[in-house]
Design a protein around this nucleic acid. Structure first.
Lengths: 201, 201, 201, 201
DNA sequence: TATGAATGAGACTTCATTCAT
DNA sequence: CATGAATGAAGTCTCATTCAT
């Protein structure tokens, strides 16, 4: 069903650099950014801490690579959707939201929560990178919404933010109060109806 | 306008315990939970670190007191609204959302982001406390939505989560991409229209 | 039976200074010297920590007063025994040992263990005081043994040390491996027979 | 003479873990358990405090390793003695006591005093470990005494405790009132005669 | 490339003591 | 006399990073 788009291939076959990022992702998925330790990464990869510095100059560099990875897996599919000509704007937004919600569920709510967490981080470069990511995401949504034509209740920018709301709410509630049945409804029919309502004109 | 409901009275007049929580709040507002240091609190209060331990047994205790404070300022007004009999269910939900959104803007997006952050925290007591807070918040919204009567697109639980979405989205975007003009629209007419759409039957 | 010679009178009627020492004794009896905290003393006395400094200039001063108290309760009776003329030397040593053993049992093995503990203490004054106490104790025993006349297996000094051995061994074993029945035998018939054997000539 | 059985080989050749324990032993020998600081250990080993944590997870772990070492050096020889078939029970007990007394003198009275000190410690694991050690020690002595056959003044358990008394008394007096000449007599002829008296039947 | 040991800064916390009230 | 707040030094422990091998 909802395939984990954040899955990674066989560890053995990965170049070390990628493996480090992949393992870091698993850790961040479970424990967030703030609790991440170089030691944990090293353990999970199966090397010593010193070895990590052969591949990345610092912890921050690993985290930046992690955000690159998130962007690739989260944003790229959205951009592809946006570029398609065989779908209406509403269909595109429906699919974007579905994609985002599936991601939220599959990755245990990660990306949206990470954005919150990083917003407080002391790593300036990391904050900037996240700002860039969310700017691109909202911009893409806004672009699609702009193709809808005039007459709706909300302008394109507002639509983009509103569409961010559902994944965010789902992430927060599922993280703290897991409820698979409710999650199913929210990511399926509820999301679908919400998009329709928001776009109705 | 949007008064900062998290503001605190004159520092001089506060018992130390309250002052510590108030100053901690200011720090957390700026830097979040993970980056909070006892040293910073002590500096901001104007004492040494050891002095803090005359008033709280641990850092975690300060954080729990902080969540108490958040609950008092965020949840109490919502509960009062819910209890009023001179408002329709839709009017109540409109005001709850307005209140929440004002809080988000006034406190620089704090509460909702903190919930995200805490969801990863190693402080088990803190996670439990936050879970309690969000459970109560959603429960109150669900209770109001239950008074709407049948026939709408969404059931009460779904409505509660959907109404959480807007403050969450506003918090995230405003934190990373501040835009006062957009924030004004989102917390005003956009919120109002969204509630109406969601409740329409 | 074995009355607790370290008991203290009604707290209410004690001048503060004495009460502080008495309460400190209770704490030391349970937890030893190293774990003693001014806060615990204050709590047990029912005052604040600052108040203790009205009566003693420092923690070390309290401990020295405590050793004075131990000396009064432990050593004074022994000296009185030594001075009696109606008892033979063996009878005196029998009673001294009985007294010491009863003390060990009644005070939960305290004095002898405290001597061990203090021997490592950083409080030079305290170590000196304990040295003085044990010197006086051994000296008194030696004095009595000197009245035995020649011909035994051991000289007076050796007898004094040997008689210290039983209370020490009882203290250590009872503290770590409490065994009331064994303790009863050791403090009664075993002690009696041991003295007789040591003094036999 | 009385060789220091607690001596350690050339520091340079020791794996760090063992070296840390050896250096800790030297410190504890001088200052006891309660006054031991991680800083002191680090200084003596010649590293920073943090480095110690690569080899032991906590201070308590170092102390437990220290007790292991004490057990190996104190208890193991006693057990070997107990197992010999070429010695009578009395000869075995004579040698055990000699061994223990030599240890007391060589190590500056350490083990027996440490047992006293630890009996008050807050480290539950450490207390349990010491309890185990003394149980084993007394048990071994009791076992040998059991081979004596009936008819003596004391039963095996009593003999075990009585034999613990001399090293304890020697430790206390030598620690506070060093007297090499007396110590020599106590560990030599006095001990020998005492064992004979206690076992006489 | 990788290891294992180490560093140095800094985290939270404890505690005897001081002092204004 | 007593309180309550505060200090300052010190304690154990953590962690990103460095470096010789």
């Amino acid at each position: 069903m909802t395939k984990d788009i954040f899955q990674h291939p066989d560890p053995e076959s990965l170049p070390r650099r990628d493996e480090i990022v992949a393992r870091t992702f698993e850790l961040v998925r479970e424990r967030g950014f703030a609790g991440l330790r170089m030691r944990q990464i090293a353990e999970k990869v199966g090397v010593t801490e010193g070895a990590l510095y052969r591949h990345f100059p610092s912890k921050e560099a690993i985290l930046l690579a992690l955000v690159d990875r998130m962007e690739a897996r989260l944003l790229a599919p959205v951009r592809q959707l946006a570029a398609r000509t065989d779908l209406s704007a509403e269909e595109k937004l429906q699919q974007v939201l579905q994609h985002h919600l599936r991601t939220v569920v599959a990755s245990q709510s990660l990306p949206i929560l990470l954005i919150s967490e990083v917003s407080f981080s002391e790593h300036e470069a990391l904050r900037a990178r996240m700002r860039q990511l969310i700017t691109a995401y909202l911009g893409t949504l806004e672009g699609i919404a702009g193709q809808l034509g005039p007459g709706g209740e909300f302008d394109p920018r507002e639509i983009a933010v509103l569409l961010l709301g559902l994944p965010a709410a789902v992430a927060i509630t599922q993280r703290l109060l897991p409820d698979a049945e409710l999650a199913g409804r929210l990511t399926g029919p509820v999301a679908s109806k919400l998009v329709h309502l928001i776009l109705s004109r």
